[in-house]
Structure formats: C-alpha cells, structure tokens
C-alpha cells in the first residue's frame, strides 16, 4: 500500500454538500501516513469549525481506505493544519464551477479583506459586474451574489 494509492481511493469520496468535488481536491485531507499494509492514518480538517458534513466525510474516508483491504484505519479530525480556500486544487476549483459555484481566488488569508466579495466573477458569464447579496448562503462555505451582466443570482465559495 502506498500513500498515492490511498489518495487515489480518497478521490472517490465526495463532499455530500457539493458532490462534484472530492475531499482531496477540497484540500481537507491534510496528511496520509501508511505504515505497511496493516495501518493507515488519515488526518483531515473541516472547512468551517462547525461544518455539519465533517462526520459524514470522516466515516466515508474511513470506509474508502478500509475497502482497500487495510486492517487498521485511523481517521483524525484536527485543526493542526487549518483549512483555507488556498488548499483547493485546480481540479477542485473546476469542480466547484461545474456545480455552479464561483470558485474563490487565491488570497493571502491573513490580510484578506472581504470587500473582494463585491466583484466575484460570475460562474455563468464570467463578468465581474456583480454584487454581493449576503456573505452567508445555504451552507457555511457559500455566499450569495447577483450578476448585473447576465442578471442571474449565483452562489460563491467563500474565501477564508
């Protein structure tokens, strides 16, 4: 068993709230340790501290590694490596777009000013003539926007 084989299996585990993206592309898998074929330790971190989907994803991650025939699987949820949207992979960003969500841009999270939410690129037409309607959306990681160009409401994935 190699680390890559485990990661490849984890690509099949999806975020239940955004089924087009895997937990790997979401960037919430922070460490995979393989100790010969008998023990695999996965460390993951939630997107938001109160993310209600983390328990489901943790169970799915454990099941996916177990399905590889690994006897002992340990999955830990920690804040040791905090999740930020910069951890999304390019494939992850594309998956968000496919789901109709404006992907977050890369930011220095320490100096991030939320004014950037006022001109998020529309996922439908690409225009930046957009307006933030609310920094809170249907899940903790999304915000609500309106495109003044193609006149559609859309959701964005919040930069954190």
């Amino acid at each position: 068993m190699t680390r890559d084989e485990v990661l490849s299996a984890l690509h099949a585990v999806r975020d239940p709230e955004i089924p087009t993206i895997s937990v790997v592309d979401m960037g919430i898998i922070t460490d995979v340790e393989v100790d010969n074929d008998a023990l695999v330790r996965v460390t993951m971190t939630p997107t938001f501290v109160g993310c209600p989907a983390i328990d489901v994803m943790r169970a799915d991650v454990e099941a996916a590694v177990r399905a590889l025939g690994v006897e002992h699987v340990e999955v830990a949820v920690t804040f040791d490596v905090p999740w930020t949207t910069n951890r999304l992979t390019d494939r992850g960003r594309a998956a968000l777009l496919e789901h109709g969500l404006a992907p977050p841009e890369q930011f220095d999270t320490l100096t991030l000013e939320l004014e950037v939410l006022n001109n998020v690129a529309c996922p439908y037409c690409g225009s930046r003539r957009t307006t933030l309607k609310s920094p809170f959306g249907p899940t903790l990681c999304r915000s609500l926007h309106y495109c003044n160009e193609c006149r559609q409401a859309f959701e964005g994935f919040k930069p954190v």
Binding site: F48, V49, G50, C51, P52, F136, P138, L140
Partner: peptide, 13 residues
Amino acid sequence: IAFSSVAQDKLGH
C-alpha cells in the same frame, strides 16, 4: 439565513 449561519458557526466554536 445569515443569523442561522452565524449561529451554526458559533455552535461549532
């Protein structure tokens, strides 16, 4: 939605 989301975040904290 905003107050409900803030509530959910805070419960997480």
